[in-house]
Simulated scan of single mutants.
Amino acid sequence: MTPLARTLVLALAALLAGCATAPPAPPAEREVTVMVYNIRAGKDLAGGENLPRVAELVRGTGADLVLLQEVDRNTQRSGPADQPAVLARLTGYSVAFGRTIGFQGGDFGVALLSRWPIRRDTLIPLLVTAPPGRTTGNREQRGVLVAVVDAPGGPIAVLDTHLDHTGDDAWRLQEIATVLQVARTAVEPGMPVLIGGDLNARPENAVHEQLRGAGFRDAWEGCGAGDAMTFPASAPDRRIDYLYVTGATRCESARVLPSDASDHRPLVFRLRLR
Score class of each variant (00 low, 15 high):
Ala81His: 10
Asp198Arg: 08
Val54Phe: 03
Gln76Ala: 14
Ala28Asp: 08
Glu188Lys: 09
Leu126Thr: 00
Gly102Tyr: 12
Lys43Trp: 07
Leu194Cys: 04
Leu68Lys: 05
Ala130Leu: 07
Arg6Met: 10
Arg73Tyr: 01
Met1Lys: 11
Ala248Met: 08
Ile124Pro: 01
Gln76Met: 10
Ala5Lys: 14
Arg73Leu: 04
Ala201Cys: 09
Asp227Tyr: 09
Gly92Met: 06
Glu29Thr: 15
Gly109Thr: 07
Ile195Ser: 01
Thr33Gly: 03
Gly143Tyr: 01
Glu221Leu: 15
Glu56Leu: 08
Ala219Trp: 06
Pro80Thr: 07
Val158Tyr: 04
Thr230Gly: 02
Ala111Ile: 02
Ala88Trp: 06
Asp227Val: 12
Gly60Asn: 07
Arg238Gln: 14
Val144His: 09
Pro258Arg: 15
Pro132Asp: 13
Gln76Arg: 15
Asp169Lys: 08
Glu175Trp: 09
Pro23Tyr: 00
Leu194Asn: 04
Pro117Phe: 05
Gly79Trp: 10
Arg255Asp: 11
Gly133Phe: 08
Thr166Ala: 10
Ala63Ser: 12
Asn200Ser: 12
Ala85Val: 05
Pro131Lys: 11
Ala28Met: 04
Gln83Ser: 06
Leu67Glu: 13
Ala151Asp: 04
Gln210Cys: 02
Val149Arg: 06
Leu112Met: 04
Leu87Trp: 11
Ala55Glu: 03
Leu4His: 13
Val54Lys: 02
Pro27Trp: 07
Val128Leu: 11
Asp237Gln: 12
Thr135Val: 06
Gly197Ala: 10
Leu16Pro: 02
Ile176Gly: 09
Tyr244Asp: 03
Pro80Asn: 10
Pro3Ala: 13
Val71His: 01
Ala41Asn: 14
Glu221Cys: 07
Gly79Tyr: 10
Thr230Trp: 00
Pro52Cys: 09
Ala25Ile: 06
Pro125Trp: 06
Ser253Gly: 14
Glu188Arg: 13
Asp150Asn: 11
Leu10Ala: 15
Gly60Val: 00
Tyr37Asn: 02
Leu173Trp: 07
Gly98Val: 08
Gly154Val: 06
Ala248Arg: 15
Val36Cys: 03
Ala41Ile: 07
Leu173Gln: 12
Asp64Gly: 03
Gly213Asn: 03
Leu163Pro: 08
Ala151Trp: 04
Ile39Ser: 02
Ile101Thr: 10
Gly143Lys: 01
Glu29Pro: 09
Val86Ser: 06
Asp82Ser: 05
Pro266Gly: 04
Ala96His: 01
Gly153His: 09
Ala25Leu: 14
Leu8Pro: 00
Leu8Met: 11
Cys223Ala: 15
Asn38Phe: 00
Gly109His: 05
Ile124Gln: 13
Arg217Gly: 06
Gly224Trp: 09
Ala183Asp: 10
Tyr93Gln: 12
Arg115Asn: 05
Gly105Asp: 08
Pro258Glu: 15
Pro232Val: 11
Ala170Asp: 13
Thr178Leu: 10
Ser78Leu: 06
Ala63Pro: 04
Ala5Gln: 13
Val32Trp: 01
Asp227Thr: 14
Ala261Gly: 14
Ala248Cys: 11
Ile101Phe: 03
Val66Lys: 00
Val71Met: 02
Thr61Ser: 14
Val54Tyr: 01
Thr166Lys: 09
Gly196Ile: 00
Ala14Gly: 08
Arg120Leu: 03
Gly62Lys: 05
Gly222Asp: 11
Ala5Phe: 12
Thr129Gln: 14
Ala20Asp: 03
Val207Asp: 12
Gly92Leu: 10
Ala20Phe: 09
Leu199Lys: 05
Thr249His: 12
Thr91Ile: 01
Ala11Arg: 07
